[in-house]
Write a protein that binds this DNA or RNA. Structure first.
Length: 563
RNA sequence: AGCCUUGUCGUCUAACGGUAGGACUGGAGACUUUGGAUCUCUAUACCGGGGUUCGAAUCCCUGCGAGGCUACCA
């Protein structure tokens, strides 16, 4: 066999792709591939959802199939249209599009009919016990459950009561419809699962049309079937639900077509809380400014933080799909953004901790315009002009009066290159009464302007700067990750309020900066250990910046981790 | 405890039963129109024990570990 695949094509298939290719080869479902992305509209999408989105939509794309967006809205108590809209926006932002938008609530009539069918077949019954009694009878994983006294009630009676459940005359919790499966099964989901319950709250789409609502287990597989989904992909915690999924499909499927469920490992990220419950709590208790707070691990949060959709998709692509529960190092996500932004973002300069630099031999009132490349890694990206003048701001720590040997920046007697401008030689500095440096002095060499013949001269260091005339003040808000504990995989007894990163909100540092361009990436001498994105004032024309290097964050994380 | 899923470098992830590879992270170095870029080098892994086989990460048995399940949530 000749194998002429390029390295790109040689990327190994994930286990679901293997299944699909096998199904395709066997001509299953007439060679049709259909998936769905089924969020419950009860919150915003987070980075974990991106993994499911990339798979659901990606599989359909790769195999010429269709992927529907289906809102799993079977519980009106938790759901809202606000979330529906936000979810659509975030999927589109990631660059995917759905074949159709469906709602589980679209299928309420069909599900209702199917429930009646089950009752008539003696496979479902109305139970009038309390939730507590039902739970008690369920038994434990090692102990069989006991049958409900209503389990063998006449079919007619169940039919009558089921109809009544949907009339709005019964209290919530007064009765439920249960499937009659096996109270002794080792799979707890087989112990006569509840499939309909009474909820007397308006649904965001169907209003007060229904009072009896199907449970997830009774809705999901059937919706897949009604829609023609062939490969229903979900996360690992639904593995134990699959037998029940199949049980219902067995009773429902008339043709040779049937949907199949496959499960992959959900995304766990270090230092990142993915629990929707906790994210909701953060929003509700105003600990963050909203679902799209740049500290949130939501897609809208990452978006505001400056992440590109491509970087998130690249990240998902790197981590792969398996069936083993792991914990991905968030450094991989951050690598993905850097990798993408390095190629795209416009480089600008920002001086965060300014000190004045005076070029003593530069004419007092002269200014000149210099060209700065937008992105050195991409020659096509063009350039923008920056203003040079006698007085500049540079970073305070780019100057040292008495420098160690390997200090390549400004120190008396040493030359450095001013980025995009001239080579200068430091001549000294001025100090105030307390001994703090207030001004630094240097002389420039006019022959060394960027691009000139002399400009090739070797100097040991390059520093960035902004002109005092051209500089604008901006308020910088530095955001870092919201959470600090490495393993935040929820419900481990962590008080989530302690997870708020004390370093996450550094709202200060008025600073001088040159005019920024949109989606700017600042490279400079500051040391942020982790890449930190920050948004600037909405009134300025800057959307986002990327700052690198810090010295403080890593240390504090270490301490918190050790406690 | 029972059932289900699952164990490959620190972390993710590959390898028709045939050389354990890649990426991130870490370390070292080079390079100076900033560099956390780029380039070079480098470290670290098949959970243990038995089998089957010429040959096992891969198949079988067994032990151990991890995660999930016992919601009128999804």
């Amino acid at each position: 066999m000749s194998d002429s695949t390029s390295p790109e094509e040689k990327k190994s298939l994930n286990f679901i792709e293997v299944v699909i290719e096998k199904d395709l080869n066997e001509g299953l479902n007439d060679g049709r591939i259909q998936t769905r992305f089924p969020p419950e509209p009860n919150g915003y999408l987070h980075i974990g959802h991106a993994k499911a989105i990339c798979l659901d939509f990606g599989l359909a794309q790769k195999y010429g199939g269709a992927c529907n967006l289906r809102f799993d809205d079977t519980n009106p108590v938790k759901e809202d249209v606000e979330y529906v809209d936000a979810i659509k926006e975030d999927i589109k932002w990631l660059g995917f599009d759905w074949a159709n938008v469906f709602y589980a609530s679209d299928y309420f009539p069909q599900l209702w009919d199917f429930a009646i069918q089950l009752i008539k077949e003696g496979k479902a019954y109305v139970d009038e016990q309390s939730a507590e009694e039902i739970a008690k009878q369920k038994g434990t994983p090692t102990q069989a459950g006991t049958n409900s006294p209503y389990r063998d009630r006449p079919i007619e009676e169940s039919l009558e009561l089921f109809a009544k459940m949907n009339q709005g005359v019964l209290d919530e919790g007064s009765m439920v419809l249960r499937a009659k499966v096996d109270m002794a099964s080792s799979n707890m989901h087989f112990r006569d699962p509840i499939i309909y319950r009474i909820i007397k709250q308006a649904h965001h789409r169907t209003g007060n049309q229904w009072y009896a609502y199907p449970m997830y287990d009774f809705a999901h597989g059937q919706c897949d079937y009604f829609e023609g989904v062939t490969h229903s992909v979900c996360t690992l915690e639904f593995v134990v639900h699959r037998p029940l999924y199949d049980w219902f499909i067995d009773s429902l499927a008339a043709s040779n077509y049937r949907p199949r469920q496959y499960e992959f490992n959900r995304l766990n990220l270090t230092y990142t809380v993915m629990s929707k419950r906790k994210l909701l709590q953060l929003v509700q208790e105003n600990l963050v400014t909203g679902w799209d707070d740049p500290r949130m691990p939501t897609l809208s949060g990452y978006r505001r933080r400056g992440y590109t959709p491509q970087s998130i998709r690249n990240f998902i692509d790197k981590i792969g799909y398996t069936k083993y529960d792991g914990m991905i190092d968030v450094a991989l996500l951050e690598f993905a953004v850097r990798e993408d932004l390095n190629k795209k973002a416009t480089r600008v300069s920002a001086v965060i901790d300014p000190i004045k630099l005076v070029i003593t031999n530069y004419p007092d009132n002269q200014t000149e315009s210099l060209e700065a490349q937008n992105n050195p890694e991409n020659p096509e990206s063009g350039s923008h002009s920056i203003l040079f003048s006698k007085e500049l701001y540079i970073e305070r720590d780019d100057f040292m009066e008495e420098a160690p040997k390997k200090y390549f920046r400004l120190t008396p007697g040493q030359e450095v290159r001013l980025k995009h401008a001239y080579i200068i030689k430091c001549t000294g500095c001025k100090r105030d009464d307390l001994g703090n440096v207030t001004e630094v002095y240097a002389e420039y060499d006019p022959q060394t302007k960027s691009g000139m013949s002399e400009s090739g001269r070797k100097v040991k260091g390059t520093i960035h700067w902004v002109s005092t005339q051209d500089a604008i003040d901006i308020e910088v808000r530095l955001y870092d990750r919201l959470f600090t504990a490495e393993d935040t995989s929820a419900d481990k007894g962590i008080d989530f309020k302690t997870l708020l990163n004390p370093n996450s909100l550094i709202v200060k540092k008025g600073c001088k900066a040159e005019s920024f361009l949109k989606t700017a990436l600042a490279y400079h001498q500051f040391q942020f250990q982790r890449i930190g994105y920050f948004n600037v004032d909405p009134d300025s024309n800057v959307d986002q910046l990327v700052f690198n290097r810090t010295v403080t964050l890593k240390d504090s994380w270490g301490k918190i981790k050790d406690q």
